[in-house]
Each structure stands twice: as C-alpha cells, then as structure tokens.
C-alpha cells in the first residue's frame, strides 16, 4: 500500500457519556502506523474532548485525555478546532490542551498542533480530504 491519502477524523461528541471519542482516538493511533496524511477536527461537543484539566474520578470512568498529548509523537499534528463551537460553549484556545509536535523540517522546533479555524475554513479543509471518518 504505497498510496498516501488525506485522512481526516472528525470528532463531534463529548468525551464522556458515550464511547465514541475514546474509540475514535484508538482509530487515530492505530491509523498512524499506516503513514497517511492525517488531520483531526474537533467540532460541536467534540471540542470538550481536548479540554484542559479533565477529572473523571467522580464518574468512575477512565480519563483518557492525556492520550491526546501523544498525538504529536504519532505525526498527527494538524488538529483543527472549530471557532464557532468554542465560542458557543464559552471556551477559548487557552482552555484546550497544549498539544505540540516537533517539526522535523524545522530543526525539530516545537510547534502548536492546534489551529482554530472558522466553520467556513473547516469546510474548505474538509473539501480537500479523501477519507473522512466521523465520530
């Protein structure tokens, strides 16, 4: 399989309450081994998935949010967050996990993986994708 395709994982649901977010992240991590051109989008309640300071002790389920920090090591460093979804929930980029990656084309400089985009910009990014997996 030498073909490289543009894969985008669209995350639309809250991290807890249903398993979609966690099982979606499992796909992203496994999929990274296939060396495709991968990006992720967080929209609607999906933006809560990458919220800072998650604490699930009271609800008795695993807090899997630290796993997102590993995405940079898996070369998943194009993470789009929809601006409108943040605003509707009273959030800003400062409320989100500080997701970084090391840019091998820039002397391994540490850079931000998260980019806040408008829904119009996100639509354009989606338009360029070849495989869209929505969760």
């Amino acid at each position: 399989m030498s073909d490289i395709k543009k894969f985008m994982y669209v995350n639309r649901k809250a991290p807890y309450g249903t398993i979609y977010a966690w099982e979606s992240l499992e796909v992203v991590l496994i999929g990274a081994a296939f060396e495709q051109e991968v990006s992720m989008a967080f929209v609607d309640d999906g933006v809560y998935q990458i919220l800072k300071g998650q604490d699930t002790t009271e609800i008795g389920v695993k807090n899997f949010s630290p796993t997102y920090s590993a995405l940079g090591d898996y070369d998943v460093n194009k993470i789009y967050v929809e601006k409108e979804s943040l605003e509707e929930r009273g959030l800003t980029v400062d409320d989100l996990l500080d997701l970084k990656y090391e840019d091998e084309d820039d002397d391994w400089a540490e850079k931000d993986s998260i980019k806040v985009v408008t829904s119009k910009e996100l639509a354009e990014i989606l338009e360029q994708q070849e495989v869209v997996l929505s969760f």
């Binding site: 399989m1 894969f7 796909v27 496994i30 999929g31 495709q36 495989v131 869209v132 997996l133």
Partner: peptide, 18 residues
C-alpha cells in the same frame, strides 16, 4: 480483525461511507 482493516478500507476504496 484489527482497526488496520478500517484504515486499509479507507486507502483501497474510492469512497468510505460511514
């Protein structure tokens, strides 16, 4: 089988429909 089968379906198919 594993999740790789999903990724492979994405690569090999002309359209992946969810």
């Amino acid at each position: 089988s594993g999740l790789g089968q999903l990724i492979e379906a994405g690569i090999q198919s002309e359209r992946l429909v969810v």
